[in-house]
Simulated scan of single mutants.
Amino acid sequence: MIDAPQPRPDEEEGFERPAPPERAPRKTAPIVPAQNIAGRALVVVIAIMTFLSCVTFGAVTLVRDTASVWENQISREATIQIKPTEGLDMEIALATAAGLAAEFDGVKGTRIIDSAATMRLLEPWLGSGFDIGQLPVPRLIIVTINEDSPPDFKDMREAITTAVPSATLDDHRTWVDRLVAMAHTTVTIGIAVLGLMLSATVMTVVFATRGAMAGNGHIIEVLHFVGAEAQFIARQFRTRFLFTGMKGAAAGGVAAIVVFILFSWWSSRNMATPQGDQAAALFGNFAIGSAGYLGVLMMVIIIGALTAATSHATVVAYLSDLEGGQTDGG
């Protein structure tokens, strides 16, 4: 006699069969692996180019602002210089020249540089403790003029030299115009150098993008042939390169800001020394101001966006060539 089959445990009444364990969702690997392009080399190159670009931009800003100050000084002040000659009473000559200059329309005031101030001007070259009365040192008069309605310098020069033959009037236009022209040339050269640095950054990104595509060429071709749009593939590269570019650009921008802060600190520490005074006379206090720091931030954003846009354009051009080759082959 054959026994009837016994029911399985899971078929008994009231027994529920356990559900199979749920599978964890599979993580999709990115088309452009991070380790292929976001390596240290590319980040360091972008950081170096950003640092040099920001420093160049800061230097251009500093020179441009200094040139603007020089131009404003032309319209604010003039100088009367009186050379000591035999039989000349210097104090009377200074008072006479200052009084004549003050009579002209467009002159706000005059100020005679006294002996103590003249000695301080000569200390970087002659040291301290010398007797200025024993040296044939010219004396100066600062003439403050109206910027909107300057005086007639020709008539003023003739009146002063007639009353004091050893006096000369210098409106600073000749040497300041030369300095301003030199500053403008420096700004033009700085802009050209900045353009070259950005071009070098673009070329670096192009080579890096082509290297990334060469390492993932089979994946790109398969995706392209099965119908993936070029914009989708290019977007993957653009996103990855945007992250890489912003990381390198941020590092370079921060390094440039640190350099500017250090220069400004050094300038403030050496303000009372002859070296610091000479540097301040030429370049100010080495502070680029809020506009300069805003320009550094814009430079970081531009380089990051330029990196992403360059990689996008390179991928689109590569896929266009791929489609052209497929059409020619067909």
Rank of each mutant, 00 (worst) to 15 (best):
I219D: 07
M271Y: 10
I257F: 09
S264H: 11
S267L: 12
M299I: 12
F260M: 11
N285K: 13
I301V: 15
G276N: 07
L297Y: 02
Q236D: 13
V226C: 06
L319I: 03
M271D: 13
F260H: 00
V222M: 15
R238Q: 10
I301T: 09
V222E: 09
H224Q: 12
G289Q: 06
S268T: 06
V258H: 02
L297V: 09
S290G: 07
Q275T: 15
V254S: 04
G284I: 06
Q278H: 09
T310S: 11
S264T: 08
T307L: 09
A308V: 04
S267R: 05
G292T: 01
Q236S: 14
Y293I: 14
F237V: 00
F232I: 08
V226P: 00
Q326S: 15
W265M: 13
V315I: 05
G292R: 02
S290A: 13
G217P: 01
V296L: 13
E229N: 10
L319A: 05
H218Q: 12
W265C: 08
H218A: 15
Y318A: 12
R269F: 11
A313I: 06
T239E: 12
I220M: 14
F232E: 09
V315M: 05
G217K: 12
Q236G: 13
G284M: 09
E229F: 08
S311T: 01
V254L: 14
S267M: 15
P274Q: 05
S264F: 13
K247T: 12
G292L: 10
A256I: 03
L306G: 06
A309G: 03
S264M: 13
L294W: 06
V296F: 08
W265A: 14
V222Y: 09
E323C: 07
D277G: 15
N270C: 11
F286N: 05
F260A: 10
S267K: 07
M246E: 02
M299W: 01
R235L: 10
A317I: 00
G289C: 08
T244E: 04
G245I: 06
A305F: 04
F243L: 11
L242I: 00
E323L: 14
K247I: 11
A305G: 05
G324H: 06
F232S: 11
V296I: 14
A280P: 05
W266I: 14
G325P: 02
L294Q: 08
F286E: 03
F286H: 07
Y318K: 07
D277K: 15
G252D: 03
F237Y: 05
L322N: 01
M298I: 07
G245P: 01
A317P: 00
M246K: 02
R240S: 11
N216R: 14
R269D: 12
G253P: 04
T273R: 09
F237L: 03
S268E: 13
M298Q: 09
